[in-house]
């Protein structure tokens, strides 16, 4: 049965073409065959609240949490504070966290501040290497930035790239995501519209291999419909939103 791949493809496509040619109407309901252009928004953009406030409320509803750093405050200090909360043993022992490369995180004086608090970043360069994989898989905190964040659903978008592993936002039990204010959008659709205008959408998908939207911690209700967190992905998702206008 396993014929040549292109033969099977030609067979399927030929069949579909001839069917479409034969029939005046493939679907009975024409209204459902096309989607609106421009696309509609399923969940409305936040109205009366600020984007940051809406994002924080939404993420909290989904068992995530959010911390807002005002202009002039130190983002790196906030990261240290949150890691300290997650890892109480931090004060006594040096700790490694799984992270994107420091220059992908857009936080001034990050490594210096972390080093003072005994925290070092482990930035994997190849997770198919067994030693790297073993080292990464035992870490409890993952630190990433985001490609974009969305106020109406409390979601973030993560890309993969040089210095930006998927593992950092996936393997550790705790995910800490840094959200620059300039990347916070009201809806997915608003973000897509911007990417289309700039002609960046295709390149973004292609260059990152995988683009993932993440909305709160990993969850399941498979066992007797009881909600459990941290099934395969992180159990806590904490966003630190900061003003990056300067």
């Amino acid at each position: 049965m396993m014929g040549d791949v292109s033969t099977a493809r030609n067979h399927i496509l030929g069949r579909l073409r001839s069917l479409i040619g034969q029939r005046e109407q493939i679907f009975r309901q024409q209204a459902t065959t096309g989607l609106p252009d421009p696309p509609m928004t399923v969940f409305p953009p936040p109205d009366d609240k600020s984007l940051v406030e809406s994002f924080a409320i939404k993420l909290a509803e989904l068992a995530g949490s959010c911390d807002v750093v005002r202009a002039g405050e130190d983002v790196a200090e906030r990261i240290v504070k949150h890691v300290g909360k997650l890892l109480p043993e931090l004060e006594s022992e040096p700790t490694e966290i799984l992270s994107w490369a420091a220059d992908e995180l857009h936080v001034p004086r990050l490594e210096q501040t972390l080093a003072e608090a005994n925290i070092s970043l482990f930035v994997p360069d190849n997770l198919h290497d067994q030693n790297t994989r073993s080292r990464a898989s035992v870490l409890d905190v993952g630190l990433t930035a985001v490609e974009a964040a969305f106020a109406n659903t409390g979601s973030i978008a993560l890309t993969t790239g040089v210095g930006r592993s998927r593992a950092a936002g996936l393997l550790p039990l705790n995910h800490l995501a840094l959200v620059p204010l300039s990347r916070l959008y009201p809806t997915f659709e608003a973000w897509l519209w911007t990417l289309r205008q700039d002609g960046r959408l295709e390149a973004l998908l292609h260059d990152s291999g995988q683009l993932a939207f993440v909305t709160g911690p990993s969850k399941s209700a498979d066992i007797e419909l009881t909600l459990t967190l941290g099934v395969h992905g992180p159990k806590t998702v904490h966003a630190i939103v900061f003003d990056d206008s300067q």
């Binding site: 399923v42 969940f43 930035v123 994997p124 360069d125 190849n126 997770l127 198919h128 659903t153 979601s155 993969t160 790239g161 040089v162 210095g163 930006r164 592993s165 998927r166 593992a167 998908l205 292609h206 260059d207 990152s208 291999g209 995988q210 683009l211 993932a212 939207f213 993440v214 909305t215 709160g216 911690p217 990993s218 969850k219 992905g233």
Partner: peptide, 23 residues
């Protein structure tokens, strides 16, 4: 739910220099 927790969009194997993703 409004959206699922994860929505993964894969557009091919990992690119040169990427730390992870399928080959």
């Amino acid at each position: 739910q409004e959206v699922t927790v994860y929505f993964s969009m894969s557009s091919g194997p990992r690119r040169p220099g990427h730390p992870d993703g399928p080959e």
